[in-house]
Design a protein around this nucleic acid. Structure first.
Lengths: 206, 206
DNA sequence: GTCTATACAAAGATAGAC
DNA sequence: GTCTATCTTTGTATAGAC
């Protein structure tokens, strides 16, 4: 039986270069947005020539799309992990904590998505209306059930999820502003952790 | 005594065109970001030819800077209005409400600033480190005094302000995502108002 | 003040040799 | 697979007539 796996990487060098390109693209797209990024910048960051880069991907847009869809899974993992059988408040606090951790560890990914959505998600709207909406609908149902069982304060589950996104991603997306205002000698993410613990403790008490 | 006011608009037509350009620039820059926007788009939206547009502003960047600095005052007005002599909880709830109202009424302005800060505020960092930081420092002091007087829960004033920004601006900046997830038949801002009322009620109780 | 025409540079993408 | 060279388009900005 011959190899029928999806076209992409086969040789070691192909895999390595494809990896390097996506890493470089993440760096550049997240910092400049789609239109602000140039193939020159991405090629240089990947250590390749521009035509060589276009040997691996047919166009700038193809790189961007591959990057977004490839990151979708890892980006949604924390919400997927929300366990219907766990302790409601602990589950939500844990989700918030994992999202904050992702903002700290993966700020480029956060800004990549932020850039895209901010500009109307022209290359990503199907991802939002598809996988993301389905997952949020599912988890909102879980939260609603918890509330009906009297285990959480009666808050709108969708806006509860939005609030977690807003509060945690803010520290990645607007990092320069946060740091400029706090000044030196601060650890924004550590402080945010304490603040958000208190905020959600108070919000969620039944 | 002759007119010594800043160079800008004098004739009626100049004033009108400058206005039209800045309005068009807000429309385009907020939707596309600085690099994504083109002078063609701005000129067309303003009903002018491209060279004519450059008669009023020396460069694309000059338009952007003028736009940002011109909007700074109105953008910071709600925080400026926070009254040290008012009722602490009511003042903060009122600030949150005014910010949410601005997200609803002025989403383009919100996205304009978001685009800029997200990409490291290359054309705006002095505004953040200057006026904005000074204002936040001042109001954080007010909040700290309220807390020390036992009138509010002991929360970090800076992160309290950040949380208001994050939660309210989210509905303007990520509008497409919010609407895609909620689906039709929702009023995101009205729902957010209820949710955030509850959230800050619970957070701020001493 | 406004226009047409155009200079000039940047950027996406392709051709074809190696 | 990778490179040099190049095509083409787009976009910022200017010149100069009206």
């Amino acid at each position: 039986m011959t190899d029928t796996s999806p076209q992409r990487p086969q040789t070691r060098i192909q895999r390595r270069n494809t990896e390097a390109i996506l890493e470089a693209a993440l760096e550049v797209f997240s910092a400049q947005g789609f239109r602000g990024a140039t193939l020159d910048q991405i090629a240089q960051a990947a250590g390749l020539s521009k035509p060589n880069l276009l040997y691996y991907f047919p166009s700038k847009e193809a790189i961007h799309i591959e990057l977004l869809s490839g990151l979708m899974d890892i980006w949604l993992a924390p919400l997927r992990a929300l366990d219907p059988d766990g302790d409601p408040k602990a589950e939500i606090m844990g989700y918030m904590r994992r999202k904050l951790e992702m903002s700290r560890e993966m700020p480029r990914e956060s800004r990549l998505f932020a850039n895209e959505i901010l500009q109307g998600a022209p290359r990503f709207i199907e991802g939002i209306e598809g996988d993301l909406k389905a997952l949020v609908d599912e988890k909102a149902g879980v939260i609603r059930a918890w509330i009906e069982a009297g285990k959480l304060a009666p808050v709108d589950p969708y806006h509860l999820i939005f609030s977690i996104w807003a509060l945690t991603q803010h520290y990645a997306d607007f990092d320069v502003q946060v740091r400029a205002i706090l000044g030196p000698g601060h650890d924004p993410f550590a402080e945010a952790g304490n603040f958000l613990d208190m905020l959600f403790e108070r919000l969620l008490a039944p």
